[in-house]
Design a protein around this nucleic acid. Sequence first.
DNA 1: CATCATCTTGATAATGCATTAATAACTGCC
DNA 2: GGCAGTTATTAATGCATTATCAAGATGATG
Lengths: 227, 227
Amino acid sequence: MNSAVILIIDDEVQIRKLLTITLTSYDYKVLEAVNAKEALTLVANHPPDLVLLDIGLPDMSGHQVLRHLREWYSKPIIVLSVQSAEEDIVQALDHGANDYLIKPFRTGELMARIRSALRQTNAETTGVVLDTGDFTIDFAARLVKKGNVPVKLTATEYTLLALMVRNEGKVLTHQYLLNEVWGPSYRNESQYLRVFVAQLRKKLESDPNRPKHIVTESGVGYRFVTA
Amino acid sequence: MNSAVILIIDDEVQIRKLLTITLTSYDYKVLEAVNAKEALTLVANHPPDLVLLDIGLPDMSGHQVLRHLREWYSKPIIVLSVQSAEEDIVQALDHGANDYLIKPFRTGELMARIRSALRQTNAETTGVVLDTGDFTIDFAARLVKKGNVPVKLTATEYTLLALMVRNEGKVLTHQYLLNEVWGPSYRNESQYLRVFVAQLRKKLESDPNRPKHIVTESGVGYRFVTA
DNA sequence: CATCATCTTGATAATGCATTAATAACTGCC
DNA sequence: GGCAGTTATTAATGCATTATCAAGATGATG
């Protein structure tokens, strides 16, 4: 039961094959890209939960890909490279990579580093049960309850809710929410937000017409407030 | 300008010294612990922003320290170790370490990995709160409070207020304010300013007729003063 | 390949906000 | 005090943003 989606960006077919087999056996879903161009469009349309990036690509330097990705992609990026020079490592990390592994790498270690990186994405709220007064969210169990009754949320609804709850009190702009939940190519689809916010309110708020927790900040975005 | 606090847990004095000097030169504040017991009490009493943990301690295995820490400490932990065996690395990462570096390490790389680890947690917690005496502004949350009561501001009102507060003490001309908030084609619409300044005063000043914070500079513009 | 839940899309209603105008209250100057 | 220029206040209007609803499209699953 993993279902995290991992994108492999590498031009060598053997490495892609090896990684795909390994990752699949660990129950990850795998996307593949053979060059920078393909990678960037793929990330835009199907944002993965983590990116494995080979720094030596044919059409564009991996560092450039990294910078492009980091303009809007906020999930973990692990760089794989034959370069073991310190300056390469430092440069990659400072451009936003979460980790850097030198090829050839040990698959067990890579898997552990992937687990570690994925863990951090939800680090702030794992194991915590949050009580808003009207409903509770158990992040570990990925479960939302209203009183004692479990509330059925779709994957998208939960992602959106969790994102807002993790940033409780802060205004999150439309662009930011759309980027994080749907990906960068949806940044203008504010309508999506309205629909899903309405669904969450209907399922969670005690009076959906007068929402106390998911608050509209007109012209800016939405804000989640606990009390 | 760093001021992040980093705890070094290592029993070898040379390594502590080397790390302390390096970290200090990068403007980090450094805490030191020579064994597990000392480390655990130190973390409890002065929680650092990041932990550098040597896995080979005299009194307790580093893995145990890791598990103890991770029961409640959620900030980054980077493990340093002479052990290069895959199983050691995997174990440490799966027990909650964010990164694992094999000794001897390159200091430049370690610094980059520290920056990378700190980036992930610090990105969201930069909440600057300004207190004017009568009300507070939390820029990260985009939230203004009068006492403990949130004040509802529209997008334009907030933009105008934030601009004035960021230039606290300075006189901002009508032209400048109009240009920044509404855009260059509105430079003559001083009436806009009057309307919105009045609204801000009504919402924020304790006596809107005798404004203490949003002060009129007749013929010139407006000035924001804190106390 | 049929079914189901979920996502996407468009149309329409409701709401909130910026803009505008009209009027009142200042301010400095003679 | 009276005048001219500037600033303040208030509320109505229309526009832009947001909410709601439901039908059609998509995609996962057995």
